[in-house]
Design a protein around this nucleic acid. Sequence first.
DNA 1: ACAAAAGTGTTCGGAATACACCCATGT
DNA 2: ACATGGGTGTATTCCGAACACTTTTGT
Lengths: 233, 233
Amino acid sequence: MDKEKKYSYKHPRPSVTVDCVVFGFDGTTIKVLLINRGIEPFKGKWALPGGFVQMDESIDEAAKRELKEETSLENVFLEQLYTFGEPNRDPRGRVISVAYYALINLDKNDPIAGDDAQKAAWFSLKKIPSLAFDHHEILRAAHYRLKGKIRYRPIGFELLSDKFTLVQLQNLYEAVLEILLDKRNFRRKIMSTDLLIELNEKDPKSIRKKAQLYKFDKAKFDELSLKGFNFEI
Amino acid sequence: MDKEKKYSYKHPRPSVTVDCVVFGFDGTTIKVLLINRGIEPFKGKWALPGGFVQMDESIDEAAKRELKEETSLENVFLEQLYTFGEPNRDPRGRVISVAYYALINLDKNDPIAGDDAQKAAWFSLKKIPSLAFDHHEILRAAHYRLKGKIRYRPIGFELLSDKFTLVQLQNLYEAVLEILLDKRNFRRKIMSTDLLIELNEKDPKSIRKKAQLYKFDKAKFDELSLKGFNFEI
DNA sequence: ACAAAAGTGTTCGGAATACACCCATGT
DNA sequence: ACATGGGTGTATTCCGAACACTTTTGT
């Protein structure tokens, strides 16, 4: 990168950070990953994982990098959410935060175990502690986006293992949407998309009747997407 | 604002701009307002109106201010769209742009007439010239958002006069969505929301049979919104 | 045998779609 | 009188919602 650009400007500039709302699903409730801040400001408070955008990386790259550094998570669903820029949202000065949200599968990933000696913990979406900065607002926006998007994009599968049962899938939708769904109607609707592959396996973790396992047919979905198909639940 | 914050950081910072996709509707097609750049970089090229975020204003305020400065538009629908931050999107150096889109009514507002001697012009969405920076990408994202959102939020009315005919409303939806709609079905659906107030007026601009005028019942919509009502077309 | 969780069909009402003619007005 | 654009109704299909019992399996 050139140190001096041809038309560069001199003026005061804000700092730009990325903050990441990491959602996980434990089979019953939606969880959010929070970091206990080791430094001021808000030392000791819980906050979303995040950090400053470097000069030579895109914002998406910054979000991926911070997620990896703070939670060791890689190759997960990550999408830009909204940019928060009230002048006094950070006591350090003018800091604009580009918020992202991530969806991860708790069985495959254990961000807390791999965590770089930081205090990270999962909190149920219903029991979030007091958060640093405007992170409550960011979290609300992320949940709102997830609630809306799960109905018309197949992003719920990101929160489950590759193999899952229909009961698990329904529990996930109920937890995200915060409503109860009719079992028969849910199954009919999800199967009518013809995007679940029935496996020759039952879930050994079922404690009574063994539940049928399925996986999401991503290849078929991607193919249909090109033709303008819309996933709708 | 304090000059020195208690926990302030010293590190290189990107510039942050706002760029605004201004949509208008002329009764037939969707138009976009573009500014012919008077300065480098991309001098002489068409670009979205926009400019740098100041240190003491929120991003929303910056977008409102730039919109007013460059187009004299005030009190219009304005919503944050997405933040674009590829490291080389601006030859001046690291510039992150928070994009907004605005919906304006061309009858009430004439941004080009009130324009501060800048070269601004309306372009049909189908005939956009080559644009500066990554503004094509921003414009595509804005149109995509508008297409999606017009189906579940009553934002189309922002593009029409307060009083409008059903034919005008349908033309608007057809222009935004780029599809043809059935006249009888469209009218039934829109009237079933019970959010249009039939006025005791006919449109004098109709050249044959005088068309019935309506206005959008915003008060009723706001009241229903509080109860969780969703506008759906 | 029984308790617990998985799995399965049908009915009904309302919404979406497809479709063609009459009416008001200016020329 | 006619050409132009505004305005209207019905029949059919499809989808969402409501609803209860059987099957499998571990104890």
